[in-house]
Amino acid sequence: MYEGAVQELIDELGRLPGIGPKSAQRIAFHILEADGADMRRLATAITDVKERVKFCSICGNVSESETCSICRDPRRDPSAICVVEESKDVMAVERTRAYRGRYHVLGGAINPIGGVGPEQLRIRELLNRLSDDAVTEVIIATDPNLEGEATATYLGRMLSTLGIRVTRLASGLPVGGDLEYADEVTLGRAFEGRRNL
Rank of each mutant, 00 (worst) to 15 (best):
A5L: 15
Q7H: 03
L9T: 13
L13I: 00
P21D: 12
K22R: 09
S23G: 10
A24Y: 05
Q25F: 03
Q25C: 07
R26N: 07
R26E: 06
I27K: 07
A28I: 02
A28D: 04
L32M: 10
L32V: 05
E33K: 15
A34Y: 01
D35S: 05
D38S: 10
M39C: 13
M39Y: 06
R40T: 09
R40K: 11
R40V: 05
R41W: 00
R41F: 03
T44E: 15
I46F: 02
T47K: 14
D48Q: 14
V49K: 02
R52A: 09
V53L: 00
S57Y: 07
I58G: 13
N61D: 03
V62R: 04
E64A: 05
E64C: 04
E64T: 05
E66R: 11
T67V: 15
C68T: 04
C68A: 00
S69W: 01
R72G: 11
D73H: 03
P74N: 12
R76H: 12
R76C: 10
R76L: 08
S79K: 13
I81R: 01
I81L: 10
V83F: 00
V83E: 02
V84Y: 06
E85N: 10
E85S: 13
K88M: 14
V90I: 00
E94H: 06
E94T: 07
R95K: 09
T96R: 03
T96H: 07
A98P: 10
Y99T: 11
R100N: 05
V105H: 08
L106W: 04
I110R: 09
I110D: 10
N111T: 02
P112W: 03
G114Q: 06
G115P: 14
V116T: 13
G117Q: 01
P118S: 00
P118I: 07
E119V: 15
Q120R: 14
Q120P: 09
L121H: 11
E125Y: 11
L127C: 15
L127N: 14
R129L: 10
S131T: 06
S131G: 00
D133L: 03
V135R: 10
V135E: 08
P144L: 01
L146H: 08
G148Y: 04
A150D: 08
T151F: 01
T151H: 02
L155E: 09
M158H: 13
M158Y: 11
L159V: 05
S160T: 04
T161A: 12
G163Q: 07
I164V: 02
R165Y: 06
R165K: 12
R168K: 08
L169P: 02
A170I: 02
G172A: 07
P174Y: 01
V175A: 14
G176Q: 07
G176L: 06
D183H: 01
E184K: 08
T186W: 07
T186A: 05
A190C: 00
A190L: 05
E192G: 13
N196K: 14
L197R: 15
L197H: 14
